[in-house]
């Protein structure tokens, strides 16, 4: 880029990797050690017997926890806090859940199609009482396809920074500033892939529309749930979750 020096890009890379390491919620080593800990049949049954309201509230809480780490990742990332507050909010509102979905591939075991949830690995059937089988299966399929890329931690760091810093999000006030940061992050990502001979993954990254569609489906499901249980959502769902998704 004519405007960014190699040192600037290198500095940005190091900053994103550090921000990611500090905010990744669960260490990859721990997630991998726990891979054999799957829920027993009885435990799965007890999750399936929970009411729809209780299961929704649990999942809303787990998503909110994951999102708090993404907010912290954004705050520590070079350039993000220099954007105007409107744009910080626009980017987080549109991108936080997308980042959570990408981060999920670290907590996913492709071999038996399970994901780390509340202390053990769970298959899609555990989430039956949510009443969103199709969405759950789409999310599992997405995690499975991301796993096939065998992302390194550094690749996830830079890729999720790019999911967040997206200058095509509607309602940005300083689009140019976001675009410049996005361009630098793209350079940083490509430079790292070149150094590690991993440029081939560029063609296999999920299309932006895929993440957008999963997030849209999640919001649609929340809308239906809210129509059935408005008081539950109002009284017990985490305020941050409501702010982001309804």
């Amino acid at each position: 880029s004519p405007n960014s020096s190699v040192t600037e890009i290198e500095h940005l890379t190091q900053n994103v990797l550090k921000s990611y390491r500090e905010t990744c919620q669960l260490r990859l080593e721990d997630l991998q050690l726990l891979r054999l800990e799957t829920f027993s049949w009885e435990e799965v049954r007890s999750y399936q017997k929970k009411s729809m309201e209780e299961m929704w509230e649990r999942c809303a809480c787990r998503i909110t926890e994951a999102i708090q780490y993404v907010v912290e990742f954004a705050k520590r990332m070079g350039g993000f806090m220099e954007l105007c507050q409107n744009d910080q909010i626009v980017l987080l509102k549109a991108g936080a859940m997308e980042v959570v979905l990408v981060r999920m591939c670290r907590a996913f075991n492709s071999e038996n199609r399970t994901v780390f949830f509340e202390g053990k690995y769970a298959g899609p059937e555990l989430f039956k009482s949510l009443g969103c089988n199709e969405l759950i299966n789409s999310i599992f399929d997405f995690a499975h396809s991301l796993c096939s890329l065998h992302f390194s931690e550094n690749e996830i760091a830079l890729f999720t920074a790019l999911v967040l810093i997206n200058s095509s999000r509607p309602w940005l006030q300083e689009k140019d500033k976001v675009e410049r940061l996005q361009n630098n992050l793209e350079l940083a990502f490509k430079h790292m892939l070149r150094k590690t001979h991993r440029e081939s993954i560029l063609a296999k990254l999920p299309p932006k529309g895929k993440l957008r569609s999963l997030c849209y489906q999640h919001m649609e499901k929340l809308r239906s749930f809210r129509q059935m249980y408005p008081i539950i959502v109002h009284a017990v769902f985490p305020p941050l979750y409501k702010e982001l998704f309804s």
């Binding site: 705050k75 941050l240 702010e243």
Partner: peptide, 14 residues
């Protein structure tokens, strides 16, 4: 409108 996000963004690194 985005009270919680504002608050999270205004707090220093937590």
């Amino acid at each position: 409108k985005h009270r919680i996000l504002h608050k999270l963004l205004q707090n220093g690194n937590s």
